[in-house]
Every structure is written in C-alpha cells, then in structure tokens.
Amino acid sequence: MSVKKFHSSIFNRDKILNIFELAKNDFRSKYAGSVLGVLWAFIYPCLTVVLYWFVFQVALKSKTDDNVPYVLWLVSALVPYLFFCDGLGGCASALTDYSYLVKKVRFDVSVLPAVRLISAFFIHAVFILLLLVTALAFGYFPKIGNVWLIYYVLSESIFLLVLGYLLSALTVFFKDIKNIISVLTQIGYWLTPLFWSSDSLTPWIRNLIFIINPVSYISEGFRNAVLYGGTPVVWYTIYFWGLVIVLDCSAKFIFGRCRSSFSDYI
C-alpha cells in the first residue's frame, strides 16, 4: 500500500465521522452491563494515585527537590503513562477484538487502531482536566509554557497511533504480542520517571533510560509543561520524532503487506 493510499484510507471526512462513531460505541461497550458503568474507568486510576500518595508521601515521606507537592508531581507524569498503557493495549488488539469487522469484505480495517485510540482518549481528556484543576488548587496558575502540554498530548497520540498500526498487524499473527505488551508496560512503570526524578541519575544513565524508553519523553514533558512551563529538550525531541518516523514507515509497510491476510488468520 502506498503512503498516499494509507493516509487517504484514514483521513477523509466520512471516515473520520465513522471513526468517532465507532469510538463512542467502543467506549460504551467497555462498561456495558456494569452497575457503575463508566465510573470504573476512573475508580482504578484514582485508587492507584491515592495508594501511591499514601505510600510515598505519607509513609515514606518522599519529597521533591523543589518542594512541589508530591501527589501533584506524581500525577502530572502518571496521567500520560496511564493513557499510554490503555491506548497501547487497546490499539494492539483492535483487529483481533473486532474480528467480525475484519472479515467483512467492504470494511476498511485501517480505522480500527484509530477507533481504539480515540476511545482511550475520552478518559485521558478528563484526567488532563482533573490534573490542571489539581495544579490550580495547589497554586500552580496558568503560564505561557503550559501550552507545551498540547504538544505532548499530540506527540503521545501520534506515537500511540503509529505503534497501534504496527502492533495490531503483528498481533494477528503472533498472539503473544499482547502478553509482551503487558510485561513491558509493567517494567516501564519503574523505568519511567514517574515516582523518581531523572535528575537523580548520572547523565549517561539518564540518557540511556530516555533512549530505550521513549515514553519518558512524554511523561517528563507533561510534568515540565504542567508544573514549570518548560520547553522540550532539543536532542531528545529530535530522537523521539526520528523514532516515530522509523516506526511509521515500518507500520505502513507491515500493515499494508499483511492487510489482505488478516481475515485468514483471525
């Protein structure tokens, strides 16, 4: 599939409307039949934050170097990581979970990873709003540098979409991909500077962590944008987008070559 055809299969008005409609249905279906419904999407992350706050701030007396409230410091990096985990898992299983649509001759399967990403983004948008309200409550008033938050939201969404196309195609043929993703996201919980500051590491270890774990670019960027209004680090921004371009080319090639075989292996 050519680059032009690949993009045109996603980015036209009718398909965008269909994607949003499918995303709303996907979002509702996750909580269909449960008493609390969509509240379950907030209960677990909120309980997780409260637990971490108690363990690290109340019990262990953890503090930040610049006296930022620890719970705010933690949540500002945790919000994008939770979106990454939710979005990555959902996008990777998009084709297998919607196998009945993949088997339809006339259905454009290229929209499915985007559907899953938008479905996950509904919750992410609410958490971003709660994060900003929490920052305001702690006295972190809006500043010009906060605009960089928009950049990081778009960067993470693009990164997830590219990974989604790549992994959703691979998951059709290698079912272990879902388990690998689960393991890697758990490891990433501790290799991403969520609970600890990257400034505590020696420069070469810090750079190594950022290279092998590009999610650090997003989580650190969120934190810097919300709390300090900081700008992205130039060298890591170049590395991050270079990686995205490489993954994008790989995703287009693999998804395009395997597309005709999806229905045979699902």
Rank of each mutant, 00 (worst) to 15 (best):
V79G: 12
G139D: 07
W148M: 13
V71W: 07
M1A: 14
M1F: 10
D176T: 00
N179Y: 15
Y31G: 14
Y236W: 08
L166C: 04
L78D: 08
L60T: 01
V215F: 08
T48S: 12
Q57M: 07
V147F: 15
V102A: 04
R223I: 10
L51I: 14
G221V: 05
S2L: 00
T64R: 02
L163Y: 13
S216T: 13
P214S: 11
I218F: 11
I209H: 06
N67A: 04
N146F: 14
F54P: 00
I212F: 09
Y140G: 02
N146H: 09
F141V: 15
W73I: 09
G229R: 03
P142F: 05
P193V: 06
V58G: 01
V49F: 10
F222G: 01
Y100T: 03
W40H: 09
L39I: 15
N224E: 12
V3H: 06
R223Q: 08
F6I: 06
A59F: 15
L136T: 14
V38Y: 05
D26I: 09
D108F: 07
F11E: 06
L131T: 02
H7K: 05
K175F: 09
N18F: 03
F6C: 09
R223M: 00
F222W: 13
S157G: 03
G188P: 01
K15D: 11
A137P: 02
L112H: 05
E220K: 14
L160W: 06
V68A: 07
G230D: 05
F54T: 07
